[in-house]
C-alpha cells in the first residue's frame, strides 16, 4: 500500500512538471463535465420526470456513477490503460519485479486531471441530496456509502476484465468501451427507465443495477425492503472473478509471450 501511494506521488510530480498543460486540462475537464450535467438539466426543463424519477433523483444517480468512474481514472488508470503496457512491452518489466502484478499495474499510471471530475461529482451529489429533502437515516447513509463504493468497484471490475482481454489480443479494444463508456452513459440514469432487456443485462451480466438502481429505489423511498439497501454488496463479490480472470491472463501471458 505504501508502495502504491509513493507511486501515486511520483505520478503527481511527473504531471506537475507540465504546469500549464495541467491547469488547462484541469479546467477543460470542468467544462466537459458540465456539458454532461447540462444535458440532464435541459431534459428536465421539458419533462417533469423520466418514468417517475425526478431530476434530483437522476442527478444523484448520475453523480454516483461519475464519482466511481472518475475515481478509477485517478487511482486505477494503469488498469484502464493496460493495453499500452502490453503493446509497448513494459509489461515484461512488471514480471521482473517481486511484487503483485495487479498492484504494479495500478502503480503504473494515474490521471490526476480527473480529480476535477471527482470533486464535481461530489458537488452535484450534495446539490441533489439537499434538494431531495430525504430524511437520512443510518441505513440510508450506509446505503449511500455502499453505492459510492460499489460504483468504484464496478468500474474497477470492468477495467480489470477489459485488461484481461488484452492477454488474448490487443486488437478490437473498442469492444470494451461498450461496457465502460457505454455502460457509464446508461448507468447515469436509473436503469429502470430503460426497457427490461437492458435492466436484465445490467443486473446479471454487468451488475450496474446494483450500483445505482436497486439501492436508489430504497434510498429515495420507492422500496422499503432492506435487501435493496444492501444490494451494492453484490458488486463487491463481482470483483473476485474479475481478479481471478486477470491472474489467469498473467499465467497465460507467460506461456505465450504475446
Amino acid at each position: 500500500m505504501k508502495l502504491y501511494f509513493k507511486a501515486l506521488g511520483l505520478h503527481l510530480k511527473a504531471e506537475l512538471e507540465y504546469r500549464m498543460s495541467f491547469i488547462f486540462s484541469f479546467f477543460s475537464q470542468v467544462l466537459v463535465f458540465f456539458s454532461y450535467y447540462f444535458v440532464i438539466l435541459a431534459m428536465f426543463t421539458r419533462f417533469d420526470n423520466i418514468k417517475g424519477f425526478t431530476m434530483y433523483e437522476v442527478l444523484l444517480c448520475f453523480s454516483i456513477i461519475q464519482f466511481g468512474f472518475a475515481f478509477n481514472e485517478v487511482f486505477a488508470r494503469g488498469i484502464d490503460k493496460f493495453d499500452d503496457l502490453i503493446i509497448q512491452g513494459n509489461f515484461d518489466r512488471l514480471l521482473l519485479r517481486p511484487k503483485n502484478i495487479l498492484l504494479q499495474v495500478l502503480c503504473s499510471n494515474s490521471d490526476f486531471i480527473k480529480v476535477s471530475r471527482l470533486i464535481q461529482a461530489l458537488i452535484v451529489m450534495i446539490i441533489a441530496l439537499i434538494n431531495l429533502h430525504i430524511k437520512i437515516t443510518l441505513i440510508k447513509f450506509i446505503t449511500l456509502v455502499l453505492m459510492l463504493i460499489s460504483s468504484i468497484a464496478i468500474f474497477f471490475s470492468i477495467f480489470v476484465l477489459a485488461a484481461s482481454y488484452c492477454f488474448i489480443t490487443v486488437q478490437g479494444l473498442e469492444v470494451r468501451n461498450v461496457f465502460t463508456d457505454g455502460g457509464k452513459q446508461m448507468a447515469q440514469y436509473p436503469i429502470g427507465v430503460f426497457n427490461k432487456g437492458f435492466l436484465y443485462f445490467f443486473t446479471f451480466i454487468i451488475p450496474y443495477g446494483f450500483v445505482n438502481y436497486y439501492p436508489l429505489l430504497y434510498f429515495i423511498g420507492k422500496k422499503s425492503n432492506i435487501l435493496y439497501a444492501f444490494s451494492p454488496l453484490i458488486v463487491l463479490i463481482y470483483l473476485i472473478p474479475c481478479i481471478l480472470i486477470f491472474n489467469l491472463g498473467v499465467k497465460k501471458y507467460s506461456s505465450t509471450g504475446s
Binding site: 505504501k2 508502495l3 509513493k6 507511486a7 511520483l10 510530480k13 511527473a14 504531471e15 512538471e17 507540465y18 512491452g89 513494459n90 515484461d92 518489466r93 519485479r97 517481486p98 511484487k99 504494479q104
Partner: peptide, 23 residues
C-alpha cells in the same frame, strides 16, 4: 531498448521507488 526509468521525473525518484519494490 526499453527504459525502466520514469520519463518525466529524475532517476533518483525511480531508484527510491525501486527500494520499496524490492524491499
Amino acid at each position: 531498448q526499453r527504459s525502466q526509468l520514469w520519463w518525466d521525473i529524475p532517476a533518483e525518484d525511480t531508484f527510491d521507488l525501486l527500494r520499496d519494490i524490492y524491499d
